[in-house]
């Protein structure tokens, strides 16, 4: 064994990686060249040079940046809970299931639930996301599919109290529920990054899939896997 052969071999790996594609993900934006800037603006490269020369010059000099969204899975347990008020009966299953006890619910008699009929009116529904650990046990506990995890994650704040999601915040928030513990959304090929589900009917109801459904899905998965390998 020649001394230094291992070092040379290791240097070969380093060089191979150096010449290979970069796997760094730039966030929140990345620099683009002139072609990338034209593609982002939706016009051809000569079109960019003639129509928007300042932008083209900036791109050549390396000052032009475009926003990047990191890839996320549909089940991502994100911030900004999605809550359908009409579905919530105020049963407080979520509050009882929460390991940290950060969900505060105050109810009064005389409310109407769109599915169950008479129920409690919800006066307060606070989630203190400043202490939340996003375990999503509250979503698992909800018997009416009223509470879902969200898909957002950029919720930085300067004031701690702003992290408490109140009932008004939850109603006003964009309804991008995560598919976590909601198999009906996974089956409908819904993507939380492409569309919002403003209406609670679009979100569907959670039903445990039958063994036949599972078998069918599994067989189809295997078929696609084999075709991928071929």
């Amino acid at each position: 064994m020649i001394y230094g052969l291992g070092l040379a071999k290791g240097m070969g790996v380093t060089l191979k990686t150096l010449l290979g594609p970069s796997f760094t993900v730039q966030y929140p934006d990345r620099r683009v060249g002139i072609m990338g800037a034209a593609k982002a603006a939706g016009i051809s490269t000569p079109g960019l040079i003639f129509k928007r020369p300042v932008k083209a010059l900036r791109a050549v000099l390396g000052f032009e940046r475009i926003a990047v969204m990191p890839t996320q899975a549909a089940r991502f347990r994100g911030n900004e809970f999605t809550w359908y008020e009409d579905r919530c009966t105020g049963c407080a299953s979520c509050a009882k299931y929460c390991p940290l006890g950060i969900i505060k619910i105050v109810t009064a008699p005389g409310g109407i639930n769109m599915q169950e009929g008479e129920s409690y009116a919800i006066e307060t529904f606070d989630i203190d996301t400043g202490r939340c650990m996003f375990c999503a046990l509250c979503v698992e506990a909800c018997p009416y599919d009223a509470l879902h995890m969200g898909s957002e994650f950029e919720r930085g704040n300067y004031v701690r109290m702003d992290l408490v999601l109140t009932k008004e915040d939850l109603i006003a928030a964009p309804k991008r529920p995560s598919t976590w513990f909601r198999p009906q959304m996974e089956e409908s090929a819904y993507s939380p990054f492409a569309e919002t589900l403003e209406d609670m009917k679009q979100a569907g109801r959670h039903e445990t899939p039958s063994v036949e459904q599972l078998t069918k899905r599994w067989v189809e998965d295997r078929r696609t896997d084999e075709s991928v390998e071929d």
Partner: peptide, 25 residues
Amino acid sequence: FERLCGARITNSYMRPGGVFMDAPD
């Protein structure tokens, strides 16, 4: 893991009696 259970580090994937949900397609 993120595809499987929605979290990368703090997974909480398993439950007494199995896992919380089947893996996505």
